[in-house]
Design a protein around this nucleic acid. Structure first.
Lengths: 230, 230
DNA sequence: AAGCAAAATTGGTCAGTACAATTTTTTTAA
DNA sequence: TTAAAAAAATTGTACTGACCAATTTTGCTT
């Protein structure tokens, strides 16, 4: 084990993970009971329990009351792990790959409900353009944009792709990406382009033209990249 | 809060998350101290602490000794969250989207080190074909395949895409996907095709032809899908 | 008003106790 | 001898009270 860790339970958890990787405990085995672990590692049962909560979240341990703690895997399960450091540009690169596929799939699964939802988003975008109050206008257009893209992702019929999009989306909201995108959406010229992009995407999805839908979505993300880059 | 949850700390954590979403605590605020929370929710401080470990892992809480627990976000940060239920076919669909892009980018960043590593993988694959011992043959070829694709992903210069590939890869290893892929790789005919696919990918990356690299990778994944589907 | 020291607050850790679910052992009866 | 039932041991779950360490707040001194 390396480095100084703030909380003890992290140390304990890492210790156990290391032991698992060293094949001291195989997958399917159960690790020593809390009381023994506490004694072995020279810590209280409290921190061992916290370490178990940690290992359980990582998907490494399966805790069974009355039986013991069993090893499921040696590395954190998918969906869990450190989030990589990413730049806004890298996010957009990933969107450029993922979103056209989502749009294409949405076009292939263009149910009336989907069309209705997307149509509502477009209406929101258009009406927001004439709002007098600036802050409300921004909020409305941002909300509409998020819902538009999220709705499309939901229609792709592949939970993995949905998850990938969700991760991308959450990254946007974390940083100041949205603010910068709002800024550009503020300039009336860009604003028009922005709404037109979404309309084009909507129309191709509505028509069920998946190939075109992919194209216009690609173009849309490209536009966003260009406008942010300038 | 809905449903019966086994562990108390999950209940407590969900309760707090709900309160955050209901704007009882804003982002940046600090939630009540452990002792008060324990009293309010009618549980012991122990389970409140476990709930805090949970919230900290979710990226929702920032725990500062001596100060308090501060709210960072209202939803789990990227990279954290339940893994969706996916079928093998959905995994391959996602690979069909991601991996050609990775191959294309690898072709654009084809450093000598990359070529050397990939070349090594190809050699492993070829030599494994003549192994007499069956189990060793399988293990070697599977290892080589994993390393080949992983190496390519590492060359894409985008941590997000790397993470996506890593998640896909981990999903493969969880289920029995690899076993099925091994089965098909066992049949000598498919085995030759399989090695040829990788050679073709390698050659295009080596040549720096990103467009062709995308194509052959797409073809490779498609082949895998077809052979598994039959 | 500014600086500093004491006190209060708050998370981190510990030890011990009781309880509930499960597993193992022992007992009992066929 | 075997199989079912009962008892005991094991193991995770939860609670309590105490003490420590880092931080913040308070209040006093200058």
């Amino acid at each position: 084990m390396s480095g100084v860790t703030k909380r003890l339970y992290i140390k304990v958890a890492n210790e156990i993970i290391e032991q698992i990787k060293n094949k001291q405990y195989e997958i399917g085995d159960c690790i020593p009971p809390e009381r023994k672990l506490a004694e072995q590692l020279g810590v209280s049962r409290t921190v061992v329990r916290e370490a178990m909560v940690y290992l359980e979240m990582l998907g490494i341990a399966d805790i069974r009351k009355g039986s013991g703690v069993f090893v499921i895997r040696s590395t954190p399960k998918m969906g869990i792990g450190v989030a990589p450091e990413v730049t806004p540009f890298e996010i957009l690169e990933a969107r450029l790959l993922i979103e056209p596929e989502l749009a294409g799939r949405a076009a292939e699964n263009n149910t009336p409900e989907l069309i209705a939802e997307l149509s509502q988003c477009i209406q929101m975008m258009e009406s927001s353009m004439h709002f007098s109050e600036e802050s409300l206008r921004q909020q409305t257009s941002v909300d509409a944009d998020r819902k538009f893209h999220k709705t499309i992702s939901g229609a792709c019929n592949n939970p993995l792709l949905i998850k990938f999009y969700t991760e991308l989306s959450s990254l946007h909201m974390e940083g100041d990406m949205w603010m910068r995108m709002d800024e550009l959406a503020n300039e009336p010229a860009a604003r028009g382009q922005w709404v037109n992009d979404h309309k084009a995407i909507f129309n191709q999805i509505k028509k069920g033209n998946s190939e075109k839908a992919r194209e216009v979505m690609y173009q849309h993300i490209s536009n966003v990249i260009n406008e942010i880059a300038t």
